[in-house]
Every structure is written in structure tokens, then in C-alpha cells.
Design a protein around this nucleic acid. Structure first.
Length: 272
DNA sequence: AGTACGTCCTGATCGC
DNA sequence: TGCGATCAGGACGTAC
């Protein structure tokens, strides 16, 4: 589930749970392959004693800058993959069966990393740029202007939907919000990026920002209402994801197809 | 370089 | 109700 809005929601939950200021006392890794850097032993050793300074997000990555007693700084980086989720809970709370990793804190709570499909990833590094892939400016912080987007799409003949999923083009974009952005912009997901007009790219850029912002707002409300239970996954998009379902705009039937192997839904009439 | 495909995993859901 | 088949919202390595 985690795309930019879900990861941003997770980030805000960790802030609200007052994770910053706490120190890690222990790492319990339940699926070794999740830890990419360094090796397991060094990871557990390096994490111990680290005091969380803040919770940042870069695209779909959560970054926890840590400082230990000797004022050495490292960063714990988490990627939630396809099915990951994070929560901070008292150690005594019942453990969800899909929690793969737990990071004990110095106040009797622990950071829990749930990851049913085991596609999540974890790094502990001195310099995040060692492991982070190239990412576009964050769509929520104004850096992803129509000009920047147009430049990224220049000369690219792949379907626009496929390119929106590239994190170097739109950091944080995922399959669902790609469909939603294209629906809002009225653009067919299968069209070649190079064939888009300047006006369409402008509309697409605006739709990307709108789609992500609207979803985050929904999470914001849900979090306030349901705290401390993290908001369940909510429907942060407006287009249907069922073949034949009525288009919210023209009432015509939605089409389901595959673009680069990913489930793709669009209105053939509004997104001709 | 750009594009397309297979692969890593298991839980949830669908159809018979 | 039970059970096998299919599907899932990410990302990367590989090959053309």
C-alpha cells in the first residue's frame, strides 16, 4: 500500500508518537534479507544507543537520523516495500503476526516494522546518498514544477504511466496515485510521454500535486480522529479500480488493462 | 540510453 | 465451506 501519502502518514505518526528523542536499545530482525547495509551483526551493534533526531521522508523512504554518545551521526533508512507499515507501541501490546522486525526503545516501547510480503528494506549508513537512488524533487515541496517534469519526459517514448512510476521522475509516486493523477488530468495512461503537449504536462503536474495532497489530508483527518490507533488504509483516490465501474465524471464504464505489468484503470472517454 | 520483462515474497481474494 | 489459482499498491537486475 505504501506510496507517498502512506509513507508521509507513517512519518507523521512516528512524530506524533514522539519517536524523536528516544534511543534504540535493541534490534530484533526477523527476516535477515530486509537488512541491506551493513551486515546483521554490525547493524545491531550500530543501532544500539542511537538517539532519534527526527523523522524525514525522501520519496517513499523514511529516514531516521541517529546520534550516539560520541556524537557520531548515522541514519536508519526504512523502505516499506509493497506491504510494509510502521508503528510505535508499548512492548506489552499484542504482536501483529506480520511484524517482521522490532526495534526496542529506551522508554518501554518499540518501533514495529510490519511487512507481510517481505519486500521492505532497511539500511544503516553514515551517508544516505550512498544508498538512495536518484529521486526527483519532492512533489509536495514545490520542486517538481511543470518545467522539471517536462524535462524528465523529454524524448521518452514509454507510456506516461510507466514513467510516472520512476522515482527519478516523480519521487514517491506509486501505481495507484499514478492512475489517479492521470485520471484527474484526463490523460490516457498508455500514451507515449513524448506525445504529450505542454498543456497536458502542466495539467499532469497539477494533478499529481492535487492527488497526493488530497490523500494526505484524508490521512491527517483520520489520524486525528483515531489516534493512537494508526489510521487503516483509506481510499485516497477518486477513480474506481474495477473493470466496468462507472466513471465519476461521465458515468461511462472504466477500463482495466496492464501497463508494464501493472494493473491500470482509466476512463476511455475522459482519458481518450 | 531507453525499454521491457522476470524475480523477490506471502497474504488476501476470487472462482469453482 | 473448502481449496487451488490468481492477484497485489515496489524496485531492481538483466537483456535486447
Amino acid at each position: 500500500m505504501p506510496e507517498l501519502p502512506e509513507v508521509e502518514n507513517a512519518r507523521r505518526c512516528l512524530i506524533k508518537a514522539e519517536l524523536p528523542g528516544r534511543a534504540f536499545t535493541k534490534a530484533d530482525i526477523g527476516w535477515a534479507k530486509s537488512v541491506k547495509t551493513p551486515d546483521l551483526e554490525e547493524f545491531a551493534l550500530g543501532l544500539r544507543g542511537g538517539v532519534v533526531q527526527d523523522v524525514h521522508r525522501r520519496g517513499k523512504y523514511i529516514l531516521l537520523p541517529l546520534v550516539n554518545g560520541e556524537s557520531e551521526t548515522r541514519t536508519l533508512i526504512l523502505h516499506l516495500g509493497m506491504s510494509g507499515g510502521l508503528s510505535v507501541q508499548p512492548r506489552t501490546n499484542p504482536m501483529h503476526p506480520l511484524v517482521r522486525h522490532t526495534f526496542s526503545l529506551d522508554d518501554g516501547r518499540e518501533l514495529r516494522f510490519e511487512d507481510g510480503r517481505k519486500f521492505g528494506k532497511i539500511w544503516l549508513v553514515s551517508d544516505p546518498s550512498e544508498v538512495l537512488p536518484p529521486l526527483s524533487p519532492d512533489p509536495l515541496e514545490g520542486g517538481l514544477t511543470p518545467q522539471v517534469l517536462a524535462k524528465s519526459l523529454e524524448g521518452r517514448n514509454a507510456p506516461i504511466k510507466a514513467l510516472l512510476l520512476e522515482q527519478s521522475i516523480v519521487a514517491g509516486m506509486g501505481n495507484l496515485y499514478a492512475d489517479e493523477s492521470l485520471f484527474l488530468a484526463g490523460i490516457n495512461p498508455t500514451r507515449s510521454a513524448a506525445g504529450l503537449t505542454g498543456e497536458e504536462i502542466d495539467r499532469l503536474q497539477q494533478s499529481i500535486v492535487n492527488a497526493l495532497t488530497a490523500s494526505i489530508e484524508k490521512y491527517e483527518t483520520a489520524r486525528d480522529e483515531s489516534w493512537p490507533d494508526p489510521p487503516r488504509a483509506l481510499t485516497g483516490w477518486t477513480h474506481p479500480r474495477t473493470e466496468g465501474a462507472p466513471c465519476p465524471r461521465c458515468n461511462g464504464p472504466f477500463t482495466g488493462t496492464r501497463v508494464r505489468g501493472r494493473g491500470t484503470y482509466y476512463c476511455p472517454k475522459c482519458q481518450g
